[in-house]
């Protein structure tokens, strides 16, 4: 889907929320404890609501009869613009938690930048979403500390998840031409400018959790924002889209 930079930008914001919501929804009924099952699905619900707001705005920008549903259900994987981090498989509970923590810290910073967007519609969604994401970040940070500074087993599981997912954090701070145009128009922010604040916060929490921050450098996969995804996204979409694809126009 080739479109305006604003459309690309809105798809990135919406797809991050949508794909992470879908991943968290996979935990429904399978959480390690009832409280966690509710927390994971409550977070999924918040993100789904945010995805609907972003994608509805994207659909307005796209025109051509698009709406939130056609964008969610009728695009192929190459048309999705989410970060690689959020499409990574749930793995075990530790993997899901670390993925959420890395994302929440980034989303909190990104939404704060968007509060000051010159685009009133974008600023309004950011204002709504940041209250919810702040709650998510508080929860994911607390759990990283409790389980990192927990038993030898919980600590090992968290450290392994951190080591596996760490390479994907680079993409959060890698800008491209779309980011540059959004920055120049006062709509968006420079992704690289968030890195220091993010690292500082993440390091503080990981230190409190007695976890080791993986070494700098190394493999830095990217491409999600441009539609080049890992093998995992296609399978996620197959499940998410099967009903509207098999029964076009189906209604409840």
């Amino acid at each position: 889907m080739a479109g305006s930079a604003r459309l690309e930008y809105l798809l990135r914001l919406g797809d991050n929320a949508l794909i992470l919501s879908q991943r968290l929804g996979e935990w429904c009924g399978k959480g390690p404890a009832l409280e966690e099952d509710m927390a994971l699905t409550n977070t999924a619900l918040d993100l789904l609501g945010q995805a609907r707001l972003w994608l509805s705005l994207a659909a307005e920008e796209a025109g051509d009869g698009a709406d939130e549903d056609t964008l969610a259900y009728l695009r192929d994987d190459r048309a999705f613009r989410n970060l690689l981090l959020v499409e990574q498989p749930n793995g075990g509970y530790a993997d899901t938690l670390v993925r959420q923590f890395l994302f929440d810290a980034w989303a909190s910073l990104a939404l704060r930048q968007l509060l000051g967007s010159s685009d009133a519609a974008i600023a309004a969604i950011a204002e709504k979403a940041i209250k919810e994401v702040s709650y998510h970040l508080r929860r994911s940070s607390d759990l990283v500390v409790r389980l990192g500074d927990g038993t030898a087993r919980s600590r090992a599981l968290l450290q392994a998840a951190l080591d596996t997912l760490w390479p994907y954090h680079h993409e959060l701070f890698t800008g491209d031409a779309v980011d540059a145009e959004m920055l120049a128009r006062g709509i968006g922010f420079d992704p690289a400018s968030l890195r220091d604040a993010w690292l500082s916060y993440v390091r503080d929490v990981l230190a409190e959790a007695t976890l080791t921050v993986p070494s700098a450098g190394g493999w830095a996969p990217k491409g999600g924002k441009q539609g080049l995804h890992s093998e995992h996204l296609g399978k996620l979409l197959a499940e998410m889209q099967v009903l509207p694809r098999s029964h076009p126009g189906a209604r409840w």
């Binding site: 810290a105 909190s108 910073l109 704060r112 940041i130 209250k131 702040s134 970040l137 508080r138 940070s141 607390d142 604040a197 993010w198 500082s200 916060y201 503080d204 929490v205 409190e208």
Partner: peptide, 17 residues
């Protein structure tokens, strides 16, 4: 009041809960 609880330091994330 949420207005008091959620006052956020915009310069830096903090774990101060």
């Amino acid at each position: 009041l949420a207005a008091n609880e959620q006052r956020i330091d915009l310069s830096r994330l903090s774990r101060r809960v």
